[in-house]
């Protein structure tokens, strides 16, 4: 398993001008990213929807590279979207998935099939063009540039160490520096999109 923050630092070297939806990696990404106007650190608007949101963004902006850091709990909750993404074939979509084998924000209970589900195989069976799975930082580091330089949709399953939170929600560290609405507004400004 790899450390999420260390993995994101490696990814950042190759990020280029991609738009990043950091998902469950957001708490680390806000401190790592050097291009916050091209980030959408939304936290968790509603579990299970990160992939469909990022897919929608990729479909709306085929001129931009869209990178998502999803989680295995989210994928399990909205797994059907993998078929939709494969059907739509957004060549600009890079779907990374953090797999810590548990629900980290609720105390670390295991997700169903924590040790057995092969998410890359599911994505491949749905029709993703390329799929990968890494369980250590070294191998990921050797391959991330190649992954990002090829066409999507690509799915990358990453085994990461759990970061368990078990405090009452109201007492947890607030890591978002902007509201969700402000983050979207900033991205739209960055992309030159007029307000509706």
């Amino acid at each position: 398993m790899m450390d999420t923050a260390e993995m994101l630092k490696v990814f950042n070297r190759y990020r280029g001008d991609a738009i990043v939806v950091p998902g469950r990696g957001g708490r680390h990404w806000v401190a790592i990213s050097t291009r916050p106007s091209r980030d959408l650190p939304l936290g968790d608007p509603a579990m299970g929807g990160h992939a469909s949101f990022a897919m929608g963004l990729a479909l709306a902006r085929p001129d931009q590279k869209i990178v998502l850091f999803d989680s295995e709990g989210d994928v399990q909750m909205g797994m059907g979207i993998l078929a939709t993404i494969a059907e739509q074939q957004p060549a600009n979509f890079y779907h990374f998935m953090l797999d810590n084998e548990c629900y980290g924000t609720t105390g670390g209970q295991p997700v169903p099939g924590a040790r057995t589900v092969a998410y890359d195989a599911i994505a491949r069976a749905c029709g993703y063009t390329r799929t990968h799975a890494y369980d250590n930082l070294e191998t990921f580091s050797l391959n991330v540039e190649r992954i990002l330089s090829g066409p999507g949709p690509v799915f990358v399953a990453l085994k990461v160490r759990p970061e368990i939170e078990n405090e009452p929600i109201g007492t947890r560290r607030k890591w978002r520096t902007r509201t969700q609405v402000q983050a979207i507004r900033d991205l739209r400004r960055e992309l030159g999109i007029a307000e509706a």
Partner: peptide
């Protein structure tokens, strides 16, 4: 954009809207 569970439609629509489409 066909989805297979309606909840996914709202998150997909949010992404499309964030990207400036309708």
């Amino acid at each position: 954009v066909g989805v297979n569970r309606e909840g996914l439609a709202f998150s997909a629509a949010a992404g499309i809207s964030a990207g400036g489409k309708h």
